[in-house]
Design a protein around this nucleic acid. Sequence first.
DNA 1: TATAATTGTTAGACTAGCCTAACAAATTTT
DNA 2: AAAATTTGTTAGGCTAGTCTAACAATTATA
Lengths: 227, 227
Amino acid sequence: MQVLSYTEENYLKGIFKLTIEMADKTEAGTNEIATHLGVKPATVNDMLKKLKDKKLIHYERYGKSSLTKEGKKRAIEIVRKHRLWETFLHEKLAFNWDEVHEVAEQLEHIQSKKLIDKLDQFLNYPSADPHGDLIPNAKGELSILPRKTLIEELVGHQCKMVGVKDNSAEFLKYVDKLGLSINQPIKVKAKQAYDNQIDIEVNGKKHSISPKFAEQIIIVCPTCNKK
Amino acid sequence: MQVLSYTEENYLKGIFKLTIEMADKTEAGTNEIATHLGVKPATVNDMLKKLKDKKLIHYERYGKSSLTKEGKKRAIEIVRKHRLWETFLHEKLAFNWDEVHEVAEQLEHIQSKKLIDKLDQFLNYPSADPHGDLIPNAKGELSILPRKTLIEELVGHQCKMVGVKDNSAEFLKYVDKLGLSINQPIKVKAKQAYDNQIDIEVNGKKHSISPKFAEQIIIVCPTCNKK
DNA sequence: TATAATTGTTAGACTAGCCTAACAAATTTT
DNA sequence: AAAATTTGTTAGGCTAGTCTAACAATTATA
Ligand SMILES: [Mn+2]
Ligand SMILES: [Mn+2]
Ligand SMILES: [Mn+2]
Ligand SMILES: [Mn+2]
């Protein structure tokens, strides 16, 4: 299996994020990839041809791009490494959860199968990183975390919003106002015994929400599902 | 402080090894550096000019090269990272001592002051790596390890030969035959109470040596001097 | 459907890091 | 001290990855 350059790996990961990880899309445009990676479209165009030659992406002139099976496999390996390193930094080296990404961006490119498998073992096979994002296992599979609603979440845990039950405009407008969106981390700070209000923290801002509201928010909680 | 490329860092480390770490030399020649790094002299020549411009080395046309104060500081940082990572791989991830170097060669280039300081702390400020080489501290200082002779070494410890007392050809020939040399790691496997013979392992090979011989071998032992 | 706006491609240029081949300086040997 | 050897430099060329500027195709809008 050919070894990819640092740059090629970043392109694969970028396309992965813009397609497979975005529920509603299966292809990514050249300009879109350029914006995501912070380079110019002309640069992306060159790389798309190269990745196509290596059979890592599907691409036709003037068309959108998507990962091949092999490309997807490679992308998942990089995501796995990124998230395991973030977990290591957070759990073992006491990095704050907002400091881990930048360093993991470098560490994800270290080439050593043994290293990453040992690291996984050392961290006790975690299923999610400090941001709540799922960590693919050594086979590239994502363990599907059980979903529940925000009302069921335990105090002190940090979960991630993955969907809503109610779809009314009224409800969604309120969701939006609280700074909530798909993949948004939410921390449950407290529950009031008196009226079952729930105190949450979203993006550094604190809110108190009603149980009626909370039971409409679908979440996954990595902490609850940790080994 | 400007950030150096992966390649520039490897050149600095190479010059460091060929000069400061070699007791008898203070300068390195172009061809010598080329051989050490596995590139051609013409390539080295280009880089020497570049490193000179950045004030990281002393270099004059047709002259030998040596590190400036700043260059040395940078080189020591890289060596520190390399050896801390080797220690991490060996102690925390159960890598064999002969597997760590290759991966550390990649990890040493990760840019994050916080990462390396936290790693140092996590490893409890080790003073030597799995090969017995000294690890510079965060200030770039090397703790000078006390020397003793092989006869004083404790069973189970791995030490490193740093010199000899006897200088006779007869003795040195025997030293050589056992695979011993400066910086060679030696592991003390056992001591026989009956005749004080010492069982050692050198480079995977086992030998039994006399006390008379052992007291001529000067060593340092990182394990004995660990905090 | 014609026009405008957006999206994507090409050509040409640049830097870092590498190479080979030819040459020049320094050092060693005779 | 001349010749031979070793060591170091230069010129020119290559690739990966980036850019700008000009242009072409596609898509949206009037
Ligand atoms: Mn991240
Ligand atoms: Mn990256
Ligand atoms: Mn090493
Ligand atoms: Mn290196």
